[in-house]
Each structure stands twice: as structure tokens, then as C-alpha cells.
Amino acid sequence: MTEKQVIRFRLNGRPVEIAVESHESLVDVLRRGFQMYSVRESCGQGLCGCCTVYVNGTAVSGCLYLAVLVDDCDVMTVEGQGSFDALSIVQQAFIEREAFQCGFCTPGMVMMATQLLQEHPLPTDEEIRHYMSGNLCRCAAYTEIIAAVHRASELMKEHGLTLPASTGSAV
């Protein structure tokens, strides 16, 4: 066993601290320490996107990201994006376009789609496929996810709705 190290970071806008071992991944720590169960380890190799979280506003694979590295960082999970009573635009669009089946990959998809729309508010199909290609869905709801990203883009443009800040606000 290695020595534990205390790290402090902001999780969905709130300051937190936890003692972690050097080998622990961000997925392990978010689940073990903070019950952030939207962050899921599936392939364990950074290939499926089920563990997508933002670190300092950038999407990373939580299963490959060592937890010690988020010391003093902003970490955001889908729990920080929206809630039952206040869904984010992307979450709303996913429901409207039925862009999920089992839902296991959905938080990662929502995170990635949100970052895509921050960078490309009016993405083409090609841009969506390219940007989202690191996220897998075994139920294969891809056609619907592409439609959902377009729908979210439309909601932003036509209704002036905005995306949640990628560093998270206190929830």
C-alpha cells in the first residue's frame, strides 16, 4: 500500500477534500468519496467515454486520470449539469430525441455533447461524429444522439438558452 495524500479540489462548484492513494483513478475517487455514480468505469481504457468528466473545463476519461492530479482543480460531473427539476439544454434535448436506451453511457454522452456545443454551437453531422467518436453506446442510439445534439443547438439558437458553465456551479 502506498501513502495516502490529501487533495483539495472543487467538485461541481463546491470545495472538497479527500485522502487518496497514488494509484487511484478519478473515477474511483469520485465514486468512493463523493458518490458521483454518473461517472462509470466500463472499458477501463479510456475508450468508451462512460467516465467522462471535466477537469478545469476540459473533458477527460476519469478511468485514466489519476485522482492526485486534480488537486486544486475544478472537477465537474453530470450531477453538476442539471437536476430533475432543472435539466440542462443537452439533457432536455436527449429526452426529446430519445437519445438513449439503457442510459449507462448517457452521462458521458451528455458531458461530451455539452463541450462540443460550447466549441461549435452549430455543429454539422460530421463534426458531431468526429467530436463524439470517443463515446460508445452499445444500444447504438447514435442516430438519435446526433439528432439530440442538433436539437440542443436549436434550443440554444432559437430560444437563447445557455449551457451550464463547464467548471460547474454549486448544486
Binding site: Y37, V78, F84, L87, I95, G103, T106
Partner: peptide, 19 residues
């Protein structure tokens, strides 16, 4: 009808034994 558990799934709150 949209899936009854839609909000639970898009917000990451849906229950799986995995959790």
C-alpha cells in the same frame, strides 16, 4: 410516451447494481 426514467438517465441518477 418518453421513457418513464428519462430524467434519471440523463442526470446520471438512474440506479444500476454497478453503483
Amino acid at each position: 410516451v418518453p421513457r418513464l426514467e428519462s430524467k434519471a438517465k440523463v442526470t446520471g441518477r438512474a440506479e444500476y447494481i454497478h453503483n
